[in-house]
Design a protein around this nucleic acid. Structure first.
Lengths: 211, 211
DNA sequence: GCTTTACAGTAACATTGGTTACAGAGTGTT
DNA sequence: AACACTCTGTAACCAATGTTACTGTAAAGC
């Protein structure tokens, strides 16, 4: 099963020799939605390769206020983790499974070795960094240049995409946390979206109609 | 002179063979403060290695509003540029010399070659990505979690560090641009800082007393 | 069914930051 | 000196967002 999952998600990226190495040293892991994969300040044990599901990556400030940075999906890995491997520094971010998620953990020592051995691995690592930098840029754009109503709209669109369905199972409070806003503000804006016919609001979940 | 500059800034990072290659294929470049090195949407011609001076990296939104992301200094390179080399995508950012700056430009084809050939180059590239990601994180923190007065304070501290002196040669309008705020707001906050004895304000420049 | 709890709706108010408008001061030009 | 131009200071006002407080109601536990 791990063979199948791996080939399905990474077969087109990695050469066969690398796939085989991954199968030998990687450990398959399955975590439920909400599972905390990484905490701020903790050290990194391995490099995750996402096979299915989604992981949300969060930043926290000194007061405990949170902010959603981006999601990782099938075929992604955590660049923050990678650099931690090299320098053995602590994590700057928190990672929580957004949906039920399957992943393969690679021992950190392999990072160095594979980087010189496999061109496909190098490309994968570079591409990964590139993607993360770009996602950070877009998050930054959103915060710096958009008002809260636009940020909320983007959030809902992204959440719908990640969760593959029209139902967003979150309370207003939870959304407020991830956008670093307050519950009242989010309720207010959601109400406006409902009046515009874009969503319909229910207790504990939101139905997306047309964003 | 290029030999000296290069060894001075990168001698401890790169093995001799790589230093020699850089000397052969790199072109030395000297640009004055204010020189635009990279524009949004343009394609990348080479990888810059900073030898002295500083470069500011800016983001712009659709309305032309700017935001300062971070500075590059001696020993740094532009990660955004690197990924552009691989994928041949357009630049997402603008880069402008903050001070008079010396740098060495590397042809983009070398990126791929050196990455497999030199361990020190690989490490340099990874470290560079790591640093940029962290700086993006801190910029994001600043925007998401701090009020404008704190952001201005951080800005002044950083500017003082980069320019190596207590005089910040900018108008309030210029500062407002880089923080994505408005001139009146910056003037207001600077006045408060002056009343607290942290700076003294003059036409076209600010004297830092104690931040 | 009754009680408790968490969630959502809403109003009133506070704060931050952005906008407009205008005055005055420094600098350079003629 | 007279003028134009740019930069800064300041006041009045506005918009967006955050805060506090209170209400109603659905769900969960008893």
């Amino acid at each position: 099963m791990m063979v199948q999952e791996l080939k399905n998600s990474y077969g087109h990226l990695f050469e066969d020799a690398l796939i085989n190495e991954i199968l030998q040293v990687g450990t398959f892991k399955e975590v439920p939605a909400g599972f905390k994969l990484m905490e701020i300040g903790s050290y990194v044990k391995g490099i995750p390769l996402l096979v299915s599901g989604a992981i949300k990556v969060l930043r926290e400030d000194k007061n405990g206020d949170e902010l959603l940075l981006y999601y990782l999906e099938k075929g992604d890995t955590c660049s923050m983790t990678m650099t931690c491997c090299l320098g053995l520094t602590k994590s700057e971010i928190r990672a929580i499974a957004e949906t039920d998620t399957k992943l393969i953990m690679i021992p950190i020592q392999k990072m160095e070795i594979w980087t010189s051995k496999y061109k496909s691995w190098r490309n994968f690592v570079f591409e990964s960094y590139h993607n993360r930098l770009n996602e950070m840029l877009h998050t930054l754009d959103s915060i710096a240049f958009n008002n809260m109503d636009e940020r909320l709209l983007n959030y809902l669109k992204e959440k719908k995409r990640i969760n593959k369905g029209n139902t967003i199972r979150n309370t207003h409070q939870e959304i407020a946390f991830e956008l670093h806003s307050s519950r009242v503000v989010i309720s207010r804006l959601l109400k406006k979206l409902e009046q515009l016919g874009k969503v319909s609001l229910h207790r504990n979940h939101i139905e997306v109609i047309d964003l």
